[in-house]
């Protein structure tokens, strides 16, 4: 029984000679709420893309729940218990809210029987009921048939989290879930994530809003220029000279203010 749900060891990635991720290693403890932060261009989203198999890594290894998934193709990684949301909303614009959530269930329904089950024709099937319940639990009550492109931004952001949740992940990867949300919406999101976490799901979140990170997370990993420069608790992170330098060294004043 491992205590780490995710172990990244010596991860490297270059794009056309440019080192984007340079020897990054860190672990994510089971049940933790870990934040991955860093200045713009530090490689945070790239880490997510490498974890979910959008790109192959050049060197190193990725282990989820003790299983080495370094060479597992992208479409199968979700089945080992890892699911994600996206920095820019990547919901399917022509699908309804419920259908988007049902896409999230795909990882659990890859058997031929499930693939050929008529979801749309039987209004009260288990998959659909589960998807509607997941939405309701997240506080998103809309027309289940509503096409998502017509919904407000904050709602779409939370639907992304719900879609990632219904694949039944052990590890939830969230890429800037609070970006662009107002205070009320951020509060609702945080509440949702805390409930998710209480169910035993580990959360790894990339976020710029430091208030949000402090409120939600119990562990922080800091990246800068593709290297890990710090890991520890939220209390320690503000005292770390390397982190302060990384943030103050950038031109981005708001981020520096947030970090300090």
């Amino acid at each position: 029984m491992t205590v780490n749900v995710l172990e990244i060891a010596g991860m490297h990635k270059s794009f056309g000679g440019l080192k984007v991720i340079d020897d990054v290693s860190f672990d994510v403890r089971k049940g933790s709420r870990t934040a991955l932060i860093g200045p713009n261009g530090a490689g945070k989203t790239t880490v997510f893309n490498l974890l979910t198999g959008v790109y192959d890594i050049d060197a190193g290894s990725i282990t989820v729940e003790g299983e080495n998934i370094t060479n597992v193709p992208a479409q199968d990684r979700v089945t080992v218990g890892m699911s994600r949301s996206f920095q820019n909303i990547r919901l399917m614009p022509h699908l309804s809210t419920v259908e988007n959530v049902m896409l999230g269930q795909h990882a659990r329904a890859r058997k031929l029987g499930s693939l050929l089950y008529p979801l749309g024709m039987l209004p009260r099937n288990n998959w659909r009921i589960a998807a509607e319940e997941a939405l309701e639990n997240a506080g998103i009550g809309t027309y289940p048939g509503e096409v998502v492109a017509n919904l407000p931004y904050g709602v779409q952001k939370r639907i992304e989290v719900v879609r990632a949740m219904v694949s039944d992940p052990k590890l939830l990867l969230l890429d800037e879930p609070a970006a662009g949300l107002n205070q009320v919406e951020t509060g609702q999101l945080q509440e949702l994530l805390e409930r998710v976490s209480d169910q035993g799901v580990t959360i790894l979140v990339v976020e710029h809003d430091m208030q949000f990170v402090r409120d939600l997370c119990d562990y922080i990993v800091v990246l800068n220029f593709g290297r890990k420069i710090f890991e520890g608790t939220p209390e320690e992170v503000h005292r770390d000279p390397a982190v302060l330098e990384a943030y103050l060294g950038t031109d981005d004043d708001t981020e520096a203010a947030n970090a300090s």
Partner: peptide, 19 residues
């Protein structure tokens, strides 16, 4: 549903386990 998802965004469909 998978086909319609591929129509909208092939890469995301892949990440949710669609072959």
């Amino acid at each position: 549903l998978a086909l319609r998802s591929i129509h909208d965004d092939e890469n995301v469909a892949t990440l949710f386990g669609v072959n």
